[in-house]
């Protein structure tokens, strides 16, 4: 499978994402923010970093970049899009995902390992995750506190769009396991069609055992499985 990894001025996890998917045996290319073509991409990753210096709001300016207009079309056509950290913020600003990410509850930048409970295994981003296994994946953000109004949260819950929640090592959703004050311990969500997802933790930094955890690979492997299934579906 071929992954397009977007590159904005001040993206800084773009190479990590390219490396992570290549290490899993797939191909990947960087796509500069001024490009309007995603090439032959099967899926798009919007990486972490500080696109456009986080000026105005995180992700607010990246949203209007030429490449994002193409990503919006790609998503509207059902293409798989994963936003990691700043990429999640960009997707929320672009209204491809509901809600917003605001300053961490304690105003501190958190750079640490966290555990994630997978809340819905029946999606293109989670299907290959072992059941009952909390994923150990690092976070590195100052603005990762997920916020949405009560109506939006109710919809997210009813549609099972909450994909990952901060938990302790045993998988319990506790207040102390929530690093940033996100509502319902939300670490990542999907859109209604389940073809666009975003999360604050970095699976790209946890896809090889040498990095201390390879739990992040389940997210990329789930995407690949979903893409393969689509290919089979098309060929049939």
């Amino acid at each position: 499978m071929h992954f397009a990894v977007l590159q904005f001025p001040a993206s800084n996890c773009d190479q990590d994402c390219v490396h992570a998917v290549r290490a899993l045996g797939h191909t990947s290319d960087l796509v500069w923010h001024k490009n309007t073509s995603l090439g032959a991409a099967d899926a798009v990753i919007i990486p972490g970093g500080f696109s456009y210096g986080d000026y105005l709001r995180c992700g607010a300016i990246a949203r209007f970049s030429p490449v994002m207009q193409t990503v919006k079309q790609f998503a509207d056509n059902g293409g798989l899009v994963l936003g990691i950290c700043n990429g999640f913020q960009v997707l929320c600003e672009a209204h491809l995902l509901p809600g917003a990410l605001i300053r961490n509850r304690d105003l501190q930048f958190h750079c640490e390992q966290v555990f994630l409970k997978t809340a819905n295994f029946d999606t293109p981003f989670t299907s290959k995750t072992p059941r009952g296994k909390p994923l150990m994946i690092p976070i590195a953000h100052g603005e990762g506190c997920y916020f949405a109004d009560a109506e939006t949260l109710a919809k997210l819950q009813a549609n099972r769009q909450i994909l990952w929640q901060y938990c302790d090592a045993k998988g319990n959703l506790t207040e102390s396991a929530n690093p940033n004050g996100s509502v319902l311990n939300i670490a990542g969500i999907a859109n209604e069609r389940f073809n666009v997802a975003g999360l604050m933790p970095h699976p790209d930094r946890a896809s090889e055992a040498i990095l201390g955890s390879d739990d992040g690979k389940y997210i990329f492997e789930s995407m690949v499985a979903a893409l393969e299934q689509r290919r089979v579906g098309k060929a049939a």
Binding site: I102, R103, N104, R105, D106, L107, C145, F147, D149, G181
Partner: peptide, 13 residues
């Protein structure tokens, strides 16, 4: 300004 319903840790601090 931040909406009233939104956590404003900076304001609080």
């Amino acid at each position: 300004t931040p909406k009233k319903a939104v956590l404003d840790p900076q304001g609080k601090t």
